[in-house]
Amino acid sequence: MARHNSNLLTPRRALSASIAAALVLSVAPIRYTAWVGWFGDLATRLIAPISHPVLQLVRWVSPARVREDPPEQRLKLEDAARFQALYLRAARENAALRERVRDLQNGVALNPDPDVSLLTASVIGISTDLSRLLLRTRIGTEAGVQPRTVATVRGVQLLGRVVHAARGLSEIRPLTDDGADTVLGRVVLTEDGQGLLCTLEPDGAGNLRGAVEDPGQRPDLPAIEIEPGLLVRLDDDAWPRHAQMLELGRVTRVDRAEDQPLRRIITVRPAMDLSRVSDIELRITRALEGDG
């Protein structure tokens, strides 16, 4: 009997069972295998002690490409950019609040604005799958990070959104990754943040690219030619209010659309290579984000 029982656990049978299990998991619909994600998070945490120091060493040897400014000047420029983004966001919210007041007079309820706190996190690794780029950090649900939490770099450059959050782990897809969604932006032409709307999507080379609104359709704006160097900010209702007016990047190229010569296509490059950042900020909201 004991001999019969030991025959049940031969290495050959164990290997055959493993192959069968792998086949089943490979083809089973994702909704039935969501529990595998727990093991994925565990594996990611286990390799973090190796991947994080390696990544830090790589970032130290070859940091993300940024504008070449002296350190003091760069800090002042970052502070100025931060305050400018806050001002423009406040201006945008004021416009939205005025509209809400009008709606309130017609009986529409107000939604409270959630509190937002910034949490700094280090990138500890990158997903191994060759189809998509996901940045990983050690901060997760225990700190309030949820899927679709907004991530930034240096406070003003929009990085992307959290696509997965677990305890002690979160994964962010950069805006410029091929799998990222289209974003709506605004090419800023005036000091108060007015400008032309644009629809941008990743171009596969670390930039965003897309069509910009026809200036002829906006007589309210000054007649400023769209040219390289102009700043582009987020202006997309699919993103939370606290993310509006964050920087998407600067225009580096302006082309004419092939099918519509009067339509302009712009290429927008973020301030740094978003796939190679080492420290990011996660914008944690106190309430669940209802918009976007």
């Binding site: 299990a21 792998a22 089943v24 994702i30 595998v36 093991f39 994925g40 990611t44 899927p147 969604d181």
Partner: peptide, 28 residues
């Protein structure tokens, strides 16, 4: 299997999923 667990696939612009098996069978 380890490569599968640490390399999620994209199931949308804001979502991903871990699929165990493809690399395990590929490496096999």
């Amino acid at each position: 299997l380890l490569v599968d667990l640490t390399g999620p696939i994209a199931t949308g612009a804001d979502s991903r999923a871990v699929v165990a098996g493809p690399h395990a069978l590929g490496y096999l």
